[in-house]
């Protein structure tokens, strides 16, 4: 019963990874092992050969009622079928769709930049600065960003290096590179999780749902129209990145990473497989989404990077991109449910 439950959970998790990677499961991946009673019936009907190894191997493969004298802790069964599912997921959807998700996102951003260009400030800068991020917030952000980039690059080297780098630099050089990548990945990983937790604590207060977010969703953030949609300190796009990226993907990738990083607590190979599928599948989506975040935070929008770099933004930037936050900071009262239809929007594009 417990076995079946665990097996169901594993298949469920595998499906989740596939969904995250915007992928359909390959037909073979979710095949259930043949029900155990078929084997029993076959033996009862005298259809199975006695005297050869077929029965013994079949029993061994079912993995029930068996003992191994000298076994390493992760090997509680002799033959595991789950490895095949893991291999199909890792070499299949996670590598294929994950890789394409990153490539498509990158190309999409290039096209977006070509069409839309940098989102410039409409009005002139006032020269007066507003504090947007405190030092501790910038510290958390940049330690998360730094570890993320290192982990992303080393992780990509381990997943795609065999196909992309190895043919270029050969087995020996790539062997050293991958060895370094693995160890850097393993040692930087826990720092990433600490940064994620710090980010969550620092930023969760300003990322809760606010009534004005409905307007942002209706207008798709003004990304396509060029309209400036008012928001409090964070608009709905930033909130989506916070909840989906930092909280959900960050915590999932971080905790599954810990399971893989500290194999001392009796994890079986099956636990490691499940952790790895969630880890790499989630990481692929995380990297693809992060490209959009990096884009809008650097070349995509004038004045966005200086906010996170120096902690201060120009008042014009604050008024145009986060109008309610700007007005609150100036001591104005913002009515709670107030998407004002006729607010002064600058439609320059």
């Amino acid at each position: 019963m417990k076995r079946q439950l665990v097996s169901c959970l594993r298949h469920g998790a595998a499906a989740l990874v596939a969904t995250l990677a915007i992928a359909a499961l390959p037909a073979g991946a979710a095949d259930a092992p043949p029900p155990a009673n078929v084997a029993a019936e076959a033996i009862g009907a005298g259809l199975v050969q006695p005297g050869n190894n077929a029965n013994a191997f079949r029993e061994a493969r079912r993995g029930e009622d068996q003992s191994i004298t000298f076994a390493a802790p992760p090997d509680r069964v002799l033959i595991q079928s789950q490895g095949e599912t893991w291999r199909q997921m890792r070499n299949g959807p996670i590598t294929q769709y994950g890789g394409w998700a990153i490539v498509v996102m990158f190309l999409g951003l290039v096209v977006f930049y070509a069409v839309r260009g940098e989102i410039k400030l409409t009005d002139k800068r006032t020269g007066k600065l507003m504090e947007r991020f405190k030092f501790i917030e910038r510290l958390a952000h940049w330690s998360l960003a730094g570890t993320f980039v290192i982990l992303g690059l080393t992780g990509i080297a381990m997943l795609f290096g065999k196909h992309l780098l190895l043919p270029l630099i050969g087995h020996t050089a790539f062997g050293y590179l991958a060895w370094a990548a693995k160890n850097v990945h393993n040692f930087i990983g826990p720092l990433f999780l600490v940064s994620v937790l710090l980010m969550v604590v620092l930023f969760v207060r300003d990322n809760v749902w606010q009534a004005i977010d409905a307007l942002w969703i209706r207008k798709a953030g003004g990304l396509l129209s060029g309209e400036h949609v008012p928001s409090h300190r964070f608009n709905f796009g930033e909130k989506t990145w916070f909840w989906l990226g930092v909280v959900f993907l960050g915590l999932m990738v971080g905790t599954t990473g810990l399971i893989l990083d500290f194999p001392l607590y009796g994890q079986t190979r099956q636990d490691m497989q499940l952790a790895h599928m969630l880890h790499s599948g989630g990481a692929m989506l995380f990297i693809a989404l992060s490209l959009a975040h990096i884009y809008i935070g650097t070349v995509g929008m004038e004045g966005a990077l200086e906010g996170m770099k120096t902690g201060y933004v120009d008042e014009t930037w604050a008024r145009e991109h986060h109008e309610y936050w700007y007005r609150e900071a100036r001591g104005e009262r913002i009515p709670d449910n107030a998407p004002r239809p006729g607010h002064k929007a600058s439609a320059a594009h």
Binding site: A72, W86, G175, F262, L264
Partner: peptide, 26 residues
């Protein structure tokens, strides 16, 4: 060349590839 990532031991149905010892940070 082996980097000790453990993927072969996850994939192997028979648990043939094994690690000399287990430690923190993989």
């Amino acid at each position: 060349l082996c980097i000790g990532c453990g993927y072969c031991s996850y994939a192997c149905p028979f648990g043939a590839p094994q690690f000399p010892q287990e430690g923190a940070f993989g």
